[in-house]
Structures are given as structure tokens and as C-alpha cells.
């Protein structure tokens, strides 16, 4: 039986045009809505799979404003059993602060009898992209950690994690409890069912306050790279353009021999 905790972050939807807030500290999400990253959607899926396969539980957690309940309910709708909101204004939080807040809740739950054998996170947050909360959390908890993992299962009391390495698929075997940061590509997140949505709507959300003041981040400001005006040269339409294409390839020297 493995109890799994999966940590997700409410982030602005950024598939369209990106605007920044006036204080240049974040993406202006007023007109685009909110989501969780693709890596974390895969982590949610892995959490429910591991809990299901081992007869354990899956708990979803976020550090954020009360609005982030929307993302917690999204995870409950696709199979997580319970949800925790660490309610905080995260504008001043750096990755070490997020890790500390999560670590405190993991320790508190453990003191109450729930040990998380596996803590899953995304490899990197879709907005701030710090690539480190998982490693920092593992250090605080004194647990082993691997990042960049696309598939993960618990068998015979061992966490087997796989990720793409420079020479092929790398396999790690970790003794629980451990921390794993997930990258998309190994599993497909599922869509919520109607009963899943209904259940999620009514589910209670454990809400706690962080125990310490944030140390902060080094952010000075965000800026958008300058937009290049379109200067595309259309070489032609349809197959008749092939000679012009090959002329270009020759000119660029990529058509040797």
C-alpha cells in the first residue's frame, strides 16, 4: 500500500498571447484563465495509478490562494482521494519557501499517522520554471529524489522510476519514502467523468496556513522579448515551389553532395 502526495501549481493559461501584469512580476491572467502544467497533469495521473495499484491513497496539494481550489477539484475529479490547500499569497514565495511549506504539511500529516511513501511533483513549474522545488523538498525531508521521470510504479515495496537519459531510458529504484519529479510523456492524463466532477464538487478541502515567513525570491522583473515584425518571403504555392525550395537549400549549404 502506498500513500501518494502530488503537488500542483495553479498557473496562467499561456497558449495564446501573453501579457504581463503592471508590476511586471507575473503573467496577467485576467483574460486567459488558469490551469496546471502538463508535467503536473501526468504526476496526478501517476499518483492515482500508484494509489490504485497498491490499494493506497492519493492526496493532491497546492500552495496558493483560495482560487487554487479550482485546480485541486480538477485533480479530485480525475481520481485523487483528498486535497490540501496551503493558503498563502505566494507572490513573495521563492522555490525554497514552497518546498518548506509543503515539507511542513508532510511532517504534520506524518505526526498524525499518514506517511506519504511517494511525493510527486512536476519537473518544473509552467510559469516560474525554477526546476528545484522537488529537490529542495527531498532535502528538507531527508528523502531520496529523482527528477525528469516519465513513468513510476511501486512494486515489492520499491519505487521504480523511469526517465529519458542521454543514452536511453534510465531506471531508478528508490526505497520509500521518496520524492519524484515528473516530466510529461510517459502517461496520458485522463479526462474527468461526470460522476468524478460531481464528487469533486462536494469533496472537503483541508485548508492550512503556512508556518513560517517566506525568505523570498530574487525576481526583479519579467519582460517580454521584442516581437519581430513579419518579414516572411513566400517561395510559392503547392508542389510548383519545389525548385525554389531546393535553390534555397543549396544557397544555405545544407544540400551538400
Amino acid at each position: 500500500m502506498a500513500n501518494v502526495l502530488v503537488c500542483i501549481k495553479r498557473v496562467p493559461e499561456t497558449s495564446g498571447q501573453i501579457l504581463l501584469t503592471d508590476d511586471e512580476q507575473a503573467v496577467d491572467a485576467r483574460h486567459v484563465g488558469w490551469t496546471v502544467s502538463a508535467h503536473e497533469e501526468c504526476a496526478i495521473e501517476l499518483a492515482t495509478q500508484v494509489a490504485g495499484a497498491t490499494g493506497g491513497t492519493s492526496t493532491v496539494l497546492t500552495v496558493g490562494s483560495s482560487d487554487a481550489v479550482e485546480q485541486l477539484r480538477g485533480a479530485l475529479a480525475v481520481g485523487c482521494d483528498s486535497a490540501v490547500l496551503i493558503e498563502a499569497d505566494t507572490a513573495t514565495y521563492g522555490p525554497a519557501d514552497v518546498a518548506a511549506a509543503i515539507g511542513d504539511v508532510v511532517s504534520a500529516h506524518e505526526a498524525n499517522g499518514t506517511t506519504y511513501d511517494l511525493v510527486l511533483l512536476g519537473n518544473d513549474a509552467a510559469d516560474t520554471g525554477d526546476f528545484q522545488v522537488g529537490v529542495r523538498l527531498a532535502a528538507l525531508l531527508g528523502r531520496p529524489v529523482v527528477t525528469g521521470i516519465s513513468a513510476c510504479a511501486v512494486a515489492d515495496g520499491v519505487i521504480v522510476a523511469r526517465g529519458e537519459g542521454p543514452e536511453g531510458t534510465e531506471v531508478f529504484e528508490l526505497p520509500p519514502p521518496a520524492v519524484v519529479a515528473v516530466m510529461e510523456g510517459g502517461v496520458s492524463p485522463r479526462y474527468p467523468s461526470i460522476p468524478g466532477r460531481m464528487k469533486a464538487k462536494r469533496a472537503p478541502i483541508e485548508t492550512v496556513s503556512p508556518q513560517r515567513e517566506p525568505a523570498g525570491h530574487g525576481r526583479v522583473r519579467w519582460k517580454l522579448p521584442p516581437q519581430q515584425p513579419s518579414s516572411v518571403e513566400i517561395l510559392g504555392t503547392g508542389p510548383e515551389a519545389a525548385p525554389a525550395v531546393v535553390d534555397l537549400l543549396e544557397e544555405l549549404g545544407v544540400l551538400s553532395r
Binding site: 519581430q228 513579419s230 518579414s231 516572411v232 518571403e233 513566400i234 517561395l235 510559392g236 504555392t237 503547392g238 508542389p239 510548383e240 515551389a241 519545389a242 525548385p243 525554389a244 525550395v245 531546393v246 534555397l248 537549400l249 543549396e250 544540400l255 553532395r257
Partner: peptide, 28 residues
């Protein structure tokens, strides 16, 4: 992708790509 590219060909890739391949082979 077209408006941000340096060069573009407009049309169905399933017609254009084979034509480019044929042209490369012909020139070689």
C-alpha cells in the same frame, strides 16, 4: 509559424514534400 518564418511555401505538405524530395534526387 508562417508569419514568423523567414521563408514559406503555402499548400499541402503531402504534395509539396514529395516534390521537394524528387527535386533533390533529380539534382543529385
Amino acid at each position: 509559424m508562417v508569419t514568423r518564418a523567414h521563408y514559406a511555401v503555402i499548400g499541402d505538405l503531402h504534395e509539396i514534400v514529395p516534390a521537394i524530395n524528387d527535386e533533390i534526387r533529380r539534382r543529385r
